[in-house]
Write a protein that binds this DNA or RNA. Structure first.
Lengths: 298, 298
DNA sequence: TCGTTCGATAGACATTCTCTATCGACAGAT
DNA sequence: ATCTGTCGATAGAGAATGTCTATCGAACGA
């Protein structure tokens, strides 16, 4: 039964019988039969089929919702028993928004001290993708914006507040200032994240509030790329303070606080709202609670 | 997988492989094999075995806890899909404490108006038994005391407040009074519920608070039996006001408010803390919310 | 019109499940 | 100490289910 539920979860992810089957490690007819069996047990069609996969019926969507929960609980049970048996081990899968990637190490390093047998897999994803991965049980935790856009069925633990800096070389027009305003920033040609990133949407909102349509000279989905451009001294960008510090400031490269308004975004750890949590996720939450204060103070 | 989890749930209930197997509709070797298979998948012993069933290991207890949730969710999923398919139908299993039995009709009657295809099964149980039945997925809802003793993983909806009356014939010593005190009640020979009932424990506490050791002349686990004795005019009892009214008062049979202190116990509907609820349980909660006010006003 | 992709179907083989029958260990009675 | 009944484990046969390979037919795009 539970394996059939895994089939439809895979089908929801892949939207394709063949690929879903491959993801489950079975052949396509096996997956087809599994889905059909579920449909017979429920007495309703769950999947709209033409000659292609055409999405789920309303009943299918409900079953999907339950399947996520049941499969997630079944895995959590396994994990918990394994932990009871042989201590915390296994793989901890985390996804983080690009602007938070630099601080993940602050979480993983003390975690690893305490639990050396846990492997990490860390993805860089947009905030929306992170929530989808959490939904689909493909990650154990996310690090993303809290409270901006709706989060779904998750628990969140605040980690720190993102505050914005204009990253620019000292000899650029605004380079000598102690603070700048968003209105001033709006006049500078900027390197920014692509608009599918929530960070970019937030910055857009702040710039638009000054009455100026943001028109960046360069867009990328990689913070490293943005930073390397700024470092040449000929470009500027807007970045969270913490990230700018991590990447390294020099005499000629300055991170100038942007005030008026002083924009603050809460960043936090997000885990599935499951009671109790899987042990690996639970330990991560403990770690997050521990370091939250020190991070925010810095 | 899920059926194996049902096996250990049955085993926890029955504490006996043979009976558990029968409850699951399989033979004893089948159930034994199922439990063994679970143990192999988990890599730990779940059940302590001698030549008898000797309870669960700590890991077994944890698996049991997860099993309750997973099996409950799987059933809730089935129920929800069945409801989507053919409207609200099936069986609604409720257990209520004896003193609340008389008001169950206030809940089931409007429920049946709205959902005529639902069958009811209603048990009379102690408050502790009700919580155990809820835990073991043997009932869909309970009606019991709220907030007195710990409830567990459930949601509760207040229904009404239980207030106590001395039920006695008009020509008995206290029969002419408008109100009586608990100290006075303590002097009267009473018919009371057996001490495994929370109602009795509450009354005991109230009587003891006056400094008198309660010594009932008659005990029973049936309110009907208590009431029929009082009705002869030669016995007295302490009953919730609502119950006394339902059973019927006459000129010679009076229900006298007991004050000093005026004891009030919240009674409410209790359902498993599952999100979303099964449709039959959800509809019952709706009904409870609807009638709660009118009940309490009367 | 042809070729390709996708999911369903058929049929063979493997695995798993479940049953009946029986065993061995233990508890309590004699 | 021995007998007896109960309980759960085990063995082995047969049934049911699951999974695979091979192939089909519909739909879509070139």
């Amino acid at each position: 039964m539970i394996d059939k539920l895994e089939y439809i979860l895979a089908l929801a992810r892949e939207k394709h019988f063949g690929r879903a089957a491959e993801a489950c490690g079975v052949t396509q007819p096996t997956l087809s039969a599994g889905v059909r069996q579920l449909e017979q047990q429920m007495g309703v069609l769950l999947v709209n089929r033409g000659s292609r996969f055409q999405g789920f019926t309303p009943e299918g969507e409900r079953v999907l919702d339950w399947a996520r929960r049941i499969v997630g609980d079944a895995r959590a049970m396994r994990d918990e028993i394994n932990t009871l048996r042989s201590g915390l081990s296994g793989v901890l899968r985390i996804a983080a928004i690009p602007t938070a990637l630099a601080m993940v190490a602050a979480l993983t390093t003390p975690y690893r001290e305490r639990h050396p047998n846990v492997q990490f897999t860390i993805y860089s994803r947009t905030s929306l993708e992170i929530l989808e991965l959490l939904e689909n049980l493909e990650i154990d935790a996310g690090i993303t914006y809290l409270g901006n856009e709706p989060l779904g069925r998750v628990n969140s633990i605040p980690l720190y507040s993102e505050r914005y800096r204009l990253l620019t070389s000292a000899d650029a027009p605004l380079g000598g200032r102690e603070t700048v305003t968003w209105a001033e920033v709006a006049q500078v040609p900027l390197c920014l994240l692509t608009p599918d990133m929530q960070n970019r949407r937030i910055i857009n909102r702040l710039l638009k509030a000054t009455g100026v349509e943001p028109r960046p000279t360069l867009e990328s989905d990689s913070m490293i790329l943005l930073f390397s451009h700024v470092r040449t001294g000929r470009w500027a960008s807007v970045m969270p303070a913490k990230l700018a510090e991590t990447l390294g400031l020099t005499d000629t490269l300055r991170a100038i606080p942007i005030t008026h308004p002083e924009a603050v975004q809460e960043i936090g750890l997000v885990v599935p709202a499951r009671e109790p949590m899987t042990p690996v996720a639970g330990a991560l939450v403990d770690e997050a609670r521990r370091i939250a204060k020190s991070l925010d103070a810095s």
